[in-house]
Design a protein around this nucleic acid. Sequence first.
DNA 1: AACCCGGGGAG
DNA 2: CTCCCAGGGTT
Length: 351
Amino acid sequence: MRSNDWKTKFREVLTDWYRRERRDLPWRRTCNPYWIWISEVMLQQTRVDTVIPYYLRFTERYPTMEDLAYAPEQELMKNWEGLGYYSRVRNLQAGVREAYETYGEVPADPERFRKLKGVGPYTAGAVMSIAFGIPAPAVDGNVMRVLSRVLLIEEDIAKPKTRKIFEAAVMDLIDRDDPSSFNQGLMELGATVCTPTRPKCLLCPVREWCGAYHEGREESLPVKSKKKKQETVPQTVIAVKSPDGRWLLEQRPDDGLLAGMWQFPTAETGDPAEAVRQITERHRLDLGPLKEAVRFKHIFTHRIWEVEAFEATSSAVGVPSGRSGWFLPEEINSLTLPNPTKKVRDAVIGG
DNA sequence: AACCCGGGGAG
DNA sequence: CTCCCAGGGTT
C-alpha cells in the first residue's frame, strides 16, 4: 500500500517508466518549443496516428515561427485540411504571430504563454513543462482518468471546474526534477495502459499506489456524466455541372460550422424539391433532372448531417460571386473542402 | 456554466 | 450504434 513517502516513489517509478517505455513519436525527437507547441495543438482531441503526417508536413513547411506567422491563410488551411477543429489553426497562427512579434520566441513563462491566442490551461502546461522543464500541470482527459483512479477522485470530469482539482493534484505530485517526463508519463500511461475500458493494470508501473486497483474499481472511474445526444439535420446537396464541364461551389460563411470552407450547393432540408427551389433561387440556375449520387451520414460533435446528394446539369450558369464560382475538377481540389464535400466530389467526379 | 467546433478509431 | 480522444473560445 502507500507508505509515508509514497509520492516520492510514485514520481520516480512513473518517470523511470516513461523514459524507458515511451513511444517514439516525431515531436518527442525535438526540444524546439515552437514545434512542441504545434504538436500539442494538433493533438487536442485528435489521435496520435492521425497527427503524425500532419505534424511532419507542418514542421517541414513552417520550420520557424516566422514562417507560420505570415503564411497565407488559404495555404495554411490546406495544410490543416482533414484534421478538424479548423479554428485551432487560425488561433495557432494568431498566437505564433503574437509571440514572434512580442518576444521573438516562445516565452518560457507560463503566464505570458497562457495569454496567447489558442493557448488554454492544458496547452500552456504541456508546452512549458515539456519544452522548458517548468513544473506546470497539463491536465487532459488522460491525466484526469489516471489520477481519478490512483487518488480515487470521484468528481464528474465532464464538469469544467473539476479540472482545477486535478491541477492541484498534479502540482502536489509532480516531479520537480523532471516535470516533462512526469506529465508525459501520466498521459502515456493513460494512452497505453490506464485506458478508458479494460485498463491493463497488471502492466501498470504504479498500480502499487492505485486506489482504484486496490478496491477493484478501475472500471468504474472516472465518473463522467453523459452529454446530451446530437440533433440530426438533413442536408440535400445538388452537384451542379455546367454544359462546359464546370461545377458550382459555394463558400460557407466566415463564422460557425466549417467556416469559410467550400461545398456543392446545399440546402438544410430532406426534401429534394425544396432544395431545388432554394438552390435555383440562390444561384439563378435552370436545372435539368436530378440524378441520385450518394447518401451518407456525417457525424460532428453536436450535430449529425444526413446527406443526400444529387447530380444535375444547369443550362443557365448564373452570376458567380465572391462566395461562389464554377470550377474545373482540378480547380476544386485546390479549395479547402470539408470531408462531406469530398465524399460528394468523389461520388460525382471520382476520387 | 453551457454551448460551439471535426474527425477517426474502438468496441 | 456509443464512447472516447494530448481542448479552447465565446457567450
